[in-house]
């Protein structure tokens, strides 16, 4: 499954990284505490969060995540989008709250590491 498939299936709004949607998704991670994301997310994961500040791009880039999905319709800071374009990290928006979005991603076959 690729990022672009998720965009299609879940009607995600693409805010940045249009050219990077062909990446294969290795699984999912959800959370808003950056140190947890750094500790546990894996390369190629889609990351569901409600954090909108530019640091999320730095984390996604460092961990080589496939995309950031902002849950609950959160709008990214302009600075976040600028950085995301520079780093080639797709930033997507879903109107669903994190619980439902993750539930549906899971049912669509996106899995994560299971436990810590």
């Amino acid at each position: 499954m690729k990022v672009e498939d998720l965009v299609k299936f879940f009607g995600l709004e693409v805010k940045a990284g249009d050219g990077q949607l062909h990446q294969e998704v290795t699984g999912g991670y959800v959370g808003d505490l950056l140190s947890d994301v750094i500790a546990h997310s894996l390369r190629g994961n889609v990351w569901v969060t409600i954090q909108t500040h530019p640091n999320i791009v730095a984390v996604a880039s460092m961990k080589e995540l496939a995309a950031i999905i902002l849950a609950g319709g959160r709008e990214p800071d302009p600075e976040t989008l600028k950085k995301a374009e520079e780093e080639g990290i797709p930033v997507l928006i879903s109107l669903l709250p994190a619980f439902e979005l993750v539930g549906r991603l899971y049912q669509a076959g996106v899995a994560g590491i299971v436990s810590c």
Binding site: G27, G28, Y29, V30, G31, H40, V48, A98, F99, E100, V102, G103, R104, L105, Y106, Q107, A111, G112, I113, V114, S115, C116
Partner: peptide, 11 residues
């Protein structure tokens, strides 16, 4: 379990 797996299973 991580939050992703937790939400997935409960949902």
């Amino acid at each position: 379990y991580i939050m992703f797996e937790t939400c997935g299973r409960l949902y």
